[in-house]
Design a protein around this nucleic acid. Structure first.
Lengths: 239, 239
DNA sequence: GCTATTTACTGGTATATACCAATATAAATA
DNA sequence: TATTTATATTGGTATATACCAGTAAATAGC
């Protein structure tokens, strides 16, 4: 069975992948324990973990802290150029969203935020920190920084749903230009902890700077996504 | 020095990161050998490699096959919504680009490409496969699928530079609507091999479907990026 | 001075083993 | 029945060791 010219962990990876397909395991189904797999493939746990790590990198499986390995759900398709909102995006694709507001308060703009937003350093800005899940799996931690001008009392509202919906329906604020940045980045520190993953896990960072129709600063947000949870889809029309 | 409540590999990771900053190592500078680091931190190579793997995930360092670990260069800032092209993007940011055309030929559109492009299955389509580097480091492998209508003889041109430049200047083709998809994905198979990285390395997948002004299929491309090589920046204006 | 060969070194893979920390389950207790 | 406690199981971390494969440097030969 074992070939000499192909590393064992690659063979385990591929056989495991084939086995997953044959079993037609459901999303979030649990894999056998590492020790069980090690004996089944007649190798050690170290090598099995190397194979599991590869399947994790490919987005086939994910780990839940000391509970086991599970089949990764389908990626959420997400368009950061629109203001549809997380809740609608998730439900429209047949998943169940949930949001926890971890903190919301009025802060004084630090220098980095002043630079980005064009506001004065120390100016009042709403800061909202939320953790959002798809089918009970935490997928993103999100920092929202919102210009309070035009939306007084925002923090008294329920922020477990869409902020964009609030801004549009309650305050009549609509976005104009957006500046989006996206790149892969490991999850560390508070973000990793909030998402319940190991520090150093693969992630996707996405930030958005949104101005209103008149070009004034409206909102800036930083999102830390689990690497296998989403597919970014943007429609662009360059004239 | 060693604390009991923090994992050794985390301490090694953080001390190594601190050391890198203190040394003010240049981009692409080489780190000491793993065995050297292991003895310096008084631990084993396995643990050192765990720490190195974390710094790699964070984009601090990268590995070159059996040659060693190096400091990661700054990310390339890249706007896939424009047709500035790789060459100009890289040079404008002070780096040195290079491109190798690995293959270019006329193929018959397979069903998946027909579905995406709206062309008939089996219809002729140009396929160009290129590998592109920044400062001699391979960063992306790119598949271009181009509608030959409007650009006959494209394959006879030099494709080591910008294809968009060719399309615009030689054939007067300009892009209209774009549909972009981006998500983290491990590099495997031919892409990993072409980039000279291990199968299963972290990467970023990006695809673009571009239509011309009249809405006809112009180009579709699939790009496989090294995870630490770029930052995607998109400007959007939603009206 | 150049080329080909050898040698040393590097990261890559693999085994065996051990203990820890968090979780889930089973058993005991109220 | 509900709650608490003990136990088993799971993944997480760590050491020690060995050999392999590709790269780079040193050496020998011309």
């Amino acid at each position: 069975m074992l070939r000499n010219d192909i590393p064992v962990y690659v063979q385990v990876r591929d056989q495991l992948w084939q086995w997953i397909q044959e079993q037609q395991l459901d999303s979030q189904a649990r894999l056998p324990a590492e020790r069980e797999l090690a004996s089944r493939f007649n190798t050690t746990r170290v090598t099995v973990r190397q194979a599991l790590g590869q399947l994790e990198a490919e987005g086939i499986i994910f780990r839940s802290n000391r509970r086991g390995w599970y089949i990764t759900p389908q990626r959420l398709i997400y368009d950061p150029s629109l203001d549809i909102g997380f809740y609608n995006t998730v439900t429209e694709q047949g998943f169940t969203p949930s949001t926890e507001t971890l903190s919301k308060r009025l802060i004084e703009a630090p220098s980095w935020l002043a630079d980005i937003s064009g506001m004065a350093e120390g100016a009042p800005i709403y800061h909202i920190l939320r953790r959002r899940s798809v089918d009970l799996r935490c997928v993103v931690v999100e920092h929202n920084y919102i210009n309070p001008r035009g939306c007084p009392g925002l923090l008294d509202q329920d922020t477990d749903l869409s902020i964009w919906l609030l801004l549009r329906e309650q305050y009549d604020l609509v976005p104009g230009k957006r500046n989006i940045e996206i790149f892969p980045q490991a999850l560390t520190g508070v973000e990793a902890e909030a998402l319940g993953v190991n520090s150093g896990s693969a992630g996707l960072y996405m930030q958005r700077l949104t101005l209103d129709k008149s070009g004034a600063f409206l909102e800036y947000d930083r999102e830390y996504w689990i690497h296998d949870a989403l597919k970014v889809a943007v429609q662009v029309n360059n004239n």
